[in-house]
Design a protein around this nucleic acid. Structure first.
Length: 135
RNA sequence: CGAGUCCGCCAGACGGCCGCGGUUGCCCAAGGCAAUCGAGGAAAGUCCGGACUCCACAGGACAGGGAGCUGGGUAACGCCCAGGCGGGGCGACCCGACGGAAAGUGCCACAGAGAUCAGACCGCCGAUGGCCCUCUCGGGGGCACAGGCAAGGGUGAAACGGUGGUGUAAGAGACCACCAGCAUCCCGGGAAACCGGGGUGGCUGGUAAACCCCUCCCGGAGCAAGGUCAAGCAGAGGCGUCGGUGGUCCGCCGGUCAAGCUUCGGGUGGACCGCACCGAGGUCUGGCGGCAACGCAGACCCCAGAUGGAUGGCCGUCGCCCGUCAUAGGCGGGUACAGAAUCCGGCUUACCGGCGGGCUCGCCGC
């Protein structure tokens, strides 16, 4: 658990972060029930490991994310932790422009090794990319 | 040293990389940069008490709810402190819904004869009355039918106060002495609860987290309170002595053809203020007053403010605890409970562990 990420994490950060697309990857937050419902109703839903990603393409603008950690994830402390780890993991991946994402947590998100969590998020996000762009 | 008890405190530390929210300043703006601040002792449960907001409010009666030894503290409390009383502990100390049972009503399982104007199973007596025997005609003896008694036995958590005497046929607070309890009066101490002492009196079960009585307190709803702006829609029916006085009634007030209430239907469900606060504010001063809770004075400080919800993610080193190999040390695992949402004061509950101090008991040494 401690030895493997030592080499893997910095590599993934360095490769995907500053210059994979050349633009500063800024992200907005989703806000309000209407925006969330829009994504959840019309978006493409993918589950990888302990996370579910719902992606929905918009007309333009920066990517937006919304995090969901429901009551079944745990108490307030565990839900906060799950949300923060998801936010940290999302910074490790490239998000498509003009797309809204809702990421839904399960209980394992709070306890799973961080590298594994990053893997789930990366797989799920990249799987949405061709569909979202093909639409 | 061991065991215990009370009080207070902490809630791993440091570093690296990458981030988030608020505020202030700067840049012409989108946005960016800099500085600065950014979870808890319980932020929790939402159980009490307030602040604040809106609605209501002449007054009275009755409901209803809450509190309940005394005094103090406090904005207030069901909280805190001190004291009293009762109970527990060798002790430090701990625990207590702790007003009234002599205002009334009710209840007291099982057992038991009887469980509150009590009762008589075994028992005791049988003076008096009755019956029988005897007779020296005064009486004497017997039976246990009437009747009397509640001492002893037995039942029970509890049996009409306890012990000893007098008394009597046998007995009983019937009477006496002492004692326990209660009521009442007086004296002394205390601010009071209460404590100590004395007199008098009647003659005494428990239960009020049973009804109840007494004293005191309580208008309702809550920040989704409440307000501003924006956007948007479609009205129709009912009540007409109706509405308000937010439990009810009396009474009062308002409206009386236009408003109000209400039912169904339609629209919106966004932004901002409230709301991040100069406050029942925090820290310090071995300050002053007080046994203490706390109050007062002075100095300094401004100390989270999100809204699908910031306060973090990952890594390293060192602590601490456990297991293991066991020589410094190595390896593996663990490092609680838990996350602000209008804000305060409490209570309760959860919690790996650690630190400091006071006191008590036991053992040992000087």
């Amino acid at each position: 658990m401690t030895t493997a990420p030592n080499t893997a994490v910095p590599a993934s950060v360095g490769s995907s972060f500053p210059d994979s697309t050349g633009r500063p990857d800024r992200v907005r937050r989703l806000s309000g029930a209407s925006e969330f419902n829009e994504v959840l109703r019309n978006g493409r839903r993918l589950r990888r490991g302990g996370v579910t990603v719902v992606a929905h393409r918009r007309h333009g603008g920066l990517p937006r994310i919304g995090l969901v950690a429901g009551r079944r994830v745990g108490g307030a402390v565990v839900r906060n932790r799950a949300r923060r780890r998801l936010r940290a993991a999302l910074r490790e991946v490239t998000l498509a422009e003009a797309t809204d994402y809702v990421v839904i947590a399960t209980p394992v998100v709070a306890t799973a090794p961080f590298e594994e969590l990053c893997g789930w998020v990366r797989d799920a996000i990249s799987s949405t990319l061709p569909r979202a762009s093909a639409r």
